[in-house]
């Protein structure tokens, strides 16, 4: 066909339903993350805690292999402490990954004035945030609660004797604890990414938030002679909630210095942190550009 005979033809292929269009942002978010070979390698390495835990559970139930490996002494008890330790390690490792690459999600759009272009399409601000949020949510899920449930299933399968029914609450604790951590990490990452165009500054601010918060909280506690300074330490609140979700007995919680504030206050601190992050996002993400 001659070129002059070609005229405009609308796209006739399948159209993504309106409701799911924000997933395009998620897809491109993944592309952005896994463009970096270093990140991909680090992501693969983040499964090491899972593999180690998997091996421990397997060994705990297999006396033959323990004998072959000449492992003496009692096998490790697979209980709430074990899953708590796994979740803690996996969450930290995955947080390092997200703090490193996560700030790219929004800062790129803002630094290049691309936000009005994205929001000029049939995608609302909420969907924009949701699309970006899902990138972090999916990555952290794959590294935290999904392997946690796999380990839980493995333990249930190997232990038998109705272990799964007597410990079903543990599965719920894994999911709730991980989801809470993921929501905090994701919202903080997005807020830092939206406010600090420089990716390094965004990463640094996230780390500073988690390191300076405890230091400031400790300063409040020391100077004012109180325990309420822990409210400035989101990590403490998260740990406190986890300890209660995983039903750690009171003496052990005391030994871990986890009784400074009531659990309800810890939940409030977490909710306030998430609320502030959402407010910051709401303030920053506008479908307009101010040129001075």
């Amino acid at each position: 066909m001659a070129v002059y005979k070609r005229s405009y033809k609308p796209y006739e292929g399948a159209v993504t339903p309106d409701r799911w269009r924000f997933l395009v942002l998620t897809r491109y978010g993944f592309y952005g993350f896994f463009d970096s070979r270093l990140f991909t390698s680090a992501f693969v390495l983040s499964f090491i805690p899972f593999l180690v835990s998997f091996a421990i559970i397997y060994l705990a139930h297999n006396a033959t292999i323990r004998a072959m490996l000449q492992m003496r002494g009692p096998s490790i008890d697979i209980n709430n402490y074990f899953f708590l330790a796994f979740l803690g390690t996996a969450s930290w490792v995955s947080f390092l990954l997200i703090a490193w690459q996560g700030p790219l999600l929004i800062s790129g759009d803002l630094a290049n004035n691309a936000l009005p272009l994205v929001l000029g399409r049939p995608i609302s601000r909420t969907e924009y945030v949701l699309g970006k949020f899902l990138v972090i949510f999916s990555l952290l899920s794959v590294a935290t609660w999904i392997p946690g449930l796999v380990l839980f299933s493995l333990q249930a399968g190997l232990e038998g004797h109705g272990w799964i029914w007597s410990h079903l609450w543990l599965a719920g604790a894994i999911v709730i604890a991980a989801w809470m951590w993921i929501v905090i990490a994701a919202l903080l990452t997005l807020a830092a990414s939206a406010w600090l165009k420089w990716r390094i500054a965004a990463s640094a601010s996230m780390f500073a938030f988690f390191f300076i918060g405890p230091a400031f909280g400790a300063a409040v506690n020391t100077i004012l002679g109180t325990n309420w300074g822990h409210l400035f330490d989101v990590l403490y609140s998260v740990k406190l909630i986890w300890v209660s979700l995983f039903r750690v007995p009171l003496p052990d919680a005391m030994a871990m210095q986890m009784l400074g504030i009531p659990t309800s206050a810890a939940w409030t601190a977490v909710l306030v942190t998430c609320g502030i992050a959402i407010l910051l996002l709401n303030r920053r993400l506008k479908a307009r550009e101010v040129v001075r």
Binding site: A204, A208, F216, A219
Partner: peptide, 28 residues
């Protein structure tokens, strides 16, 4: 208390992160 604040807040985190922000920004 002041000594504790100096050693645990300023020396370990405050000055560390402050210098990180100030000095990495000089050229970057």
């Amino acid at each position: 208390v002041l000594a504790g604040i100096f050693q645990f807040f300023y020396l370990r985190f405050g000055i560390f992160f402050g210098c990180m922000g100030i000095f990495t920004w000089l050229f970057r």
